[in-house]
Design a binder for these strands. Structure first.
Lengths: 160, 160
DNA sequence: TTCATAATTGTTATAATATAACGTATTTTG
DNA sequence: CAAAATACGTTATATTATAACAATTATGAA
């Protein structure tokens, strides 16, 4: 399971994410076109969220003809619809989903120093959100849980 | 205590919010200027979040000279700093804080139909967020918990 | 009070994020 | 292959937010 905080060969993360995306899309009959796959790869370039215009810029460095914003946003929309990436509304940025395919309401731990962001599925959070909603007679359709602060690595760097 | 879902005379909510804001600012030596108070009143116009540019437009209907965006954003920043309003990042919009003064990490229930938004302090959520962060060695500085879905009133309207 | 300082607001310009609308090309399916 | 659907290209523009500097107003010390 992906943990952004431990040292790792990130190429594995990228390759694994792409493989899984191909497999999931195949199963669902969704078309993971070269453009969409490229955008997914760019989003997975690190464990930090990336903005749509940064994706656009990266894309521009690779292709002759510079892509336009709608091209990128459409690809991002596709990837979100199929649960391959998430949008972090507190940052206006996107990050690869660390466990696509599974139904989940994740919590994101966003480091305000190094920007590394860890996606967590925490049953206690899910349960308490449900409890909160139920107590109000509210029906949850979508949740956004984003915590910003300091990740263990940046915390450690302070004291060492 | 404010509950957005029950029928109520909303003027009371506004007046109460303004009174409390005046009192809190006085205590802290913060200057709740006429502009800032007016913006707070506009944010409190309803239990639905309002965008900065909507505040701007409302302000324009009242004043001769149309205010400019920085004027509104500065007032909103002041109000946020002093815990009088919240920004909902999933909507890029602002809502009056229903219990200013108290330290709290709220959860917002946003109705996607009528837009009415209820702020909830839920101890279970706070506890589980802390637990989640702690399990990762993450230090929370700020939290954003926004649930969108259907409020009890809109749910009821479907079945009736 | 009066001046100096700080805080607030005004003003202009622009940055950053996102989408509408329509045309073209490619893929899929009958 | 032809028709339809899907994806992508392109232009323009909407929406949200901030930088930079000028003018004004409030505050506090002498």
């Amino acid at each position: 399971m992906t943990n952004a905080y431990h040292p790792h060969n990130h190429k594995h993360c990228i390759e694994e994410a792409l493989q899984e995306a191909r497999s999931l899309c195949k199963d669902k009959g969704a078309r993971l076109t070269p453009l969409r796959e490229k955008v997914l790869e760019l989003v997975w370039q690190s464990h930090s969220p990336i903005g749509a215009y940064d994706v656009l810029a990266e894309l521009g460095r690779l292709e002759e003809r510079a892509a336009q914003p709608p091209t990128v946003y459409r690809a991002l929309d596709f990837l979100m619809e199929h649960g391959l990436i998430h949008r972090l509304s507190s940052l206006n940025a996107f990050i690869g989903c660390s466990h696509p395919g599974e139904q989940h309401n994740s919590c994101f731990l966003i480091c305000e120093k190094c920007r590394v962001t860890q996606e967590i599925e925490h049953l206690g959070i899910e349960a308490s959100l449900k409890d909160c909603a139920q107590s109000q007679g509210f029906q949850i359709k979508d949740s956004s849980v984003e915590l910003s602060g300091l990740c263990p690595n940046c915390l450690g760097a302070d004291t060492e």
